[in-house]
């Protein structure tokens, strides 16, 4: 991006993703290097905001325990019913006991995505470190759960018994590869979507400094913001439903 800077206006679409110390004045100190694991950074702050938003919706919103729900309570109930039905439909009856875990993932990703859309905020889910952790938790959890529940029978899902015998070893290799690619695509999809959306918005926002195209740029930012709202919800949904699909392999036994 340096050569863009030379032409007079600079767009730094990636600067919004920089992790920095939160209680730190950038004019006097270095806020970005040598960040220890325990320090309060903008990641910490926005994750705390995510937690608070979830608590506000799910705990504070439902405090009335009303038979006729208030608006916030009915939003919480809708999300509950939506995810519960998804878990039940996709993983079957045995998967329902992992519902709190799936709900945690969904709510965290949804609220992190939505809070990230507040101008000037920090999108925690656009970071590969975060999404890879989330995806690895699902991947390792599903694999260990499958092995614990089905023993070595879990490995039977790589042996496609409906295919001709000669093809089976080849298919097994492909299945194994696709199995291990799962956490990669699972995490990169989420981070990539959010990173791309926010970067594109930033690029168009940068174009707004050019008088000739600024009306177009402002309109484009508005339109992309709407699209990003959709993406934020859809990606949370997709991450969750893929979690359910993977979970089905573990609880539903070997598929064929």
């Amino acid at each position: 991006m340096t050569d863009v800077a030379e032409t007079g206006f600079a767009i730094h679409p990636m600067d919004q993703f920089i992790v920095k110390r939160f209680f730190c004045d950038a004019a006097h100190a270095d806020c970005t290097t040598n960040i220890e694991w325990y320090e309060i950074t903008n990641v910490t702050v926005w994750m705390a905001a995510t937690v608070l938003a979830i608590v506000a919706l799910m705990v504070f919103g439902s405090r009335g325990r009303a038979i006729i729900p208030s608006r916030i309570q009915s939003v919480g109930e809708m999300i509950y019913g939506f995810i519960y039905k998804m878990v039940e439909d996709v993983t079957g009856h045995d998967g329902v006991k992992y519902f709190p875990y799936v709900m945690t993932l969904f709510l965290f990703i949804l609220f992190a995505n939505l809070l990230g859309l507040i101008p000037g905020s920090f999108t925690t889910t656009s970071h590969v470190a975060v999404t890879v952790t989330l995806a690895l938790m699902v991947f390792l959890g599903v694999t260990l759960l499958g092995l614990a529940k089905n023993g070595l029978g879990f490995l039977g899902m790589f042996w496609v018994s409906s295919a001709p015998l000669a093809l089976r070893p080849v298919l097994a290799v492909i299945e194994v590869i696709s199995y291990f690619v799962r956490p990669v695509s699972h995490s990169i999809r989420l981070a990539g979507n959010l990173m791309a959306g926010h970067a594109v918005m930033k690029v168009f926002a940068g174009f707004a400094s050019m008088a000739v195209i600024s009306p177009v740029a402002v309109g484009a930012v508005t339109a992309i913001y709407g699209l990003e709202l959709l993406v934020a919800v859809v990606q949370a949904y997709v991450f969750t439903i893929l979690t359910c699909v993977y979970l089905k392999d573990a609880v539903g036994g070997a598929h064929h």
Partner: peptide, 26 residues
């Protein structure tokens, strides 16, 4: 910034804290 591994420890720590809190609350 996503590939700056020096911040990963910080992010993952706080992510796990956040997830555990959300999980327990839920």
């Amino acid at each position: 910034p996503q590939l700056d591994t020096s911040t990963w420890g910080n992010q993952i720590t706080w992510l796990l804290v956040a997830l555990v809190v959300i999980y327990l609350v839920l």
